[in-house]
Write a protein that binds this DNA or RNA. Structure first.
Length: 452
RNA sequence: UCCUGAGUAGCUCAGCGGCAGAGCGGGUGGCUGUUAACCACUAGGUCGUAGGUUCGAACCCUACCUCAGGAGCCA
């Protein structure tokens, strides 16, 4: 494999024989030579190549325009210019793949809205290149966090017949011809869907391997048009046997802190760039998130605080109702001024699998709210008592037969256990400062959008 | 899905009832160890679509389409 620009730029000393392959970001011509700035995606920075007019291949310099792919051979030398440590003195230039004047990415800044229309090219920009390098490193950090703590990665199915109730509308998967709905003749001989959560399957493995997590694509057919919803997104779902709500909240908080720290330590160049051009408060916020304990509030107390806040909200705060976005934002952005975990919600507004608390009115649920984004984690201790679970299912009008294997977990060696879902894209929004979910996923799927 | 706003050159926008504009990008020429290079010249438009009002519409009205932001749902 070729040496990357990231590697060349990290060299300790000059080098006589280098080969650089990348895409031209900008070219500046002189009479007798040209400056070519190349980027190969390995890092944010470009490598400046100086190509003298006599160098083999210089006859095609006019075609080495922004976006063109080129290969440069030469010597790595200290750069006399102030802006960079190293540059390449070219001894040969090869145009690998040209890019004519219709190439959409100009040298100037573009809006995210325009770049979404050229999603196949946008990773070649500084912003999206940064975002997707960060995405990769954070994905790795997610696995590291769990693996360091004895969690096993479980690949839960993407095609599923089970509905993780409360998670949202599902995409149906079928091989039946249009218009037919005899599910007995369908591929799986029953209705099948794309998963909205690996939780139910995850619980089966938690009660076998102890600590597990899933990290994969998740699908919601909601007609949501917001900056923080996508129809296809990646969710991290740990599930822990012998764990209660307190342990659940501790793990979620530790994980968000771990990932904020990972961003600070492992993507310094991208962080600097994002802090400068996307969100000037980013670094400060990440230090804060990584360094200080989060706030924890029982739902009832949160409602009380909101009611006494003196603020007039568009929607009134009422015990027994879901907290509105404006309420969550006020709590995390203005009252606590830090991430806050709200727990012990009224049972009426939460799904059947959440564990009933001793008060008989609330369930051991928790939502982790962060400034600017809102809910980033949703989780709970699961109901492990067979009779209580069955009563919950009856109350939610769910048939026990269709969840028979889930109920079985409460028949055989049932244990207290808990877990949560962490939205990977929302986490990326938090650590990059990017305010729209469509800009932190390579190819966003939202209502009406499935191009690319 | 609901509410609000916006659609004018490749991109970002100005023009808000009387000849279609700028910056950037593109092309051509010049200049310079340059670095969002610089200077000059130049090409580039069905003003989102369809209707309406008016002597006259990019501009006012209606509908639709698209995009964005907010809401709901949630991760």
């Amino acid at each position: 494999m070729n040496t990357t620009i990231r590697e060349w730029l990290a060299m300790e000393s000059a080098c006589d024989a280098v080969v650089v392959q990348g895409w031209v970001r900008t070219r500046r011509d002189s009479k007798a030579f040209s400056f070519l700035e190349l980027n190969d995606g390995s890092c944010l920075r470009n490598l400046q190549c100086v190509v003298d007019a006599g160098v083999p291949g210089y006859d095609r310099i006019a075609e080495c325009t922004t976006g063109a792919a080129v290969r440069v051979e030469g010597r790595l030398v200290a750069s006399p210019g102030g802006a960079q440590k190293w540059e390449v003195r070219a001894t040969a230039l090869e145009l690998v793949g040209g890019a004519d004047e219709t190439f959409p990415l100009q040298k100037k800044g573009h809006t995210p809205e325009f770049l979404r229309t050229v999603a196949h090219l946008r990773p070649r920009t500084n912003l999206y290149g940064s975002i997707f390098r960060v995405r990769s490193r954070l994905s790795y950090a997610v696995h590291r966090f769990f693996q360091e703590r004895g969690f096993f990665h479980v690949h839960t199915p993407i095609l599923t017949a089970s509905d993780c109730e409360g998670a949202g509308e599902m995409f149906r998967v079928t091989t039946l011809p249009a218009g037919e709905d005899d599910f007995a003749k369908d591929f799986f001989a029953r209705q099948a869907f794309l998963t909205v959560s690996g939780q139910l399957e995850g619980e089966t493995f938690a009660t076998a391997l102890g600590r597990i997590y899933t990290f994969g694509p998740t699908f919601r057919a909601e007609n949501s048009n917001t900056t923080r919803h996508a129809a296809e997104f990646w969710m991290i779902e740990p599930e822990m046997a012998f764990c209660d709500l307190a342990g659940d909240m501790e793990t979620a908080e530790a994980q968000v802190k771990y990932l904020a720290r990972a961003m600070l330590e492992e993507s310094p160049e991208e962080l600097e760039f994002l802090n400068k051009f996307v969100d000037k408060g980013l670094r400060e916020r990440l230090e804060f998130v990584a360094g200080r304990p989060f706030e924890r509030l029982p739902y009832a107390e949160a409602v009380d605080i909101l009611q006494r806040s003196g603020r007039t909200f568009e929607y009134p705060v009422e015990y027994g109702q879901n907290l509105q976005s404006e309420h969550e934002r006020w709590l995390t952005e203005e009252h606590c001024r830090c991430p806050v975990t709200v727990f012990d919600y009224p049972k009426e507004i939460k799904p059947f699998y959440m564990r009933l608390n001793d008060d008989g009115r609330t369930v051991a649920a928790m939502d982790l709210l962060v400034p600017g984004i809102g809910e980033i984690v949703g989780g709970s201790q699961r109901e492990e008592r067979l009779d209580v679970l069955r009563a919950n299912m009856a109350r939610h009008h769910l048939s026990e037969e269709s969840y028979w294997w889930y109920v079985d977990l409460r028949r055989y060696g049932s244990v207290p256990h808990a877990g949560y879902g962490l939205g990977f894209e929302r986490l990326l929004m938090l650590v990059t400062g990017v305010s729209n979910i469509r800009d932190v996923i390579p190819f966003a799927r939202t209502p009406g959008h499935c191009e690319f």
